[in-house]
Amino acid sequence: MLHIEDLHVKVGEKEVLHDINLHINEGETHVLLGPNGSGKTTLLMTIMGFSNYTITEGKILFKGEDVTKMHAHERAKRGMGMLFQRPPTISGLKLGKILTAISHDKGENIPELARSVHMDGFLERDINKGFSGGEIKRSEVLQLLIQNPDFIMLDEPESGVDLENISLIGAAIGSLLEKDKHIIKRQKSGLVITHTGYILDYLETDRGHVMCDGQIKCHGNPREILMDIKQRGYKECLECRHN
């Protein structure tokens, strides 16, 4: 599904990602752990194609196609989607209007999907204006439900969300990632960023990676990695010279 090779990324004049290699197969959900400021969001924004993030070396292959130079909407059209940690507030733009624009008249039942994540009362509200942490995430999930991407990046889906909402959001993401299907029948893939790991109680993941200082330092079983970090913090990761 996603294949990243030797990726180097600059923001402004500064290189913030160094030599990233990542491979996510169809049907797999990976988790990317790492302390604040380690470059996790930068990696997601780069994969999505945001213009602030300049790829200086390496490439991104998506479904076998080189998308390194594509704009965000071209990547979205090919099946990428993203749940933003802090999406912008767009004054005057109603959530319902965005959903209609995303659906491109594909015939999704917007009111029903909105009800499923308790956002039916928000369709006439300006997107993210005065939304609570949980409402922002539910609005993001709702947009993804309509967009229905094949590969979903989730940037800290649990941040600012209370317990009740985490379980709702986890369940919705699970259905987006076809977690209800048998493992060999799953076709959707995901990449989840978390620094607390709470979301992993609600979402099964297949493989974990740890990012520090703009590099992916290690790979492994997500629960083991998380347990390690819970016990020892990121200190060891920061000191780790292994690459």
């Binding site: 999505m48 194609g49 945001f50 213009s51 704009h71 965000a72 909407h73 990547r75 979205a76 059209k77 990428m80 989607g81 993203m82 933003f84 999406p87 912008p88 767009i90 733009l93 209007k97 965005i98 624009a101 995303i102 491109h104 947009q143 967009q147």
Partner: peptide, 17 residues
């Protein structure tokens, strides 16, 4: 770009905003 990441091209995103 937020709207572009949802599949709207730049002109559609601009007009929507």
């Amino acid at each position: 770009e937020y709207l572009m990441s949802r599949g709207l091209d730049e002109d559609e995103a601009t007009a929507t905003i």
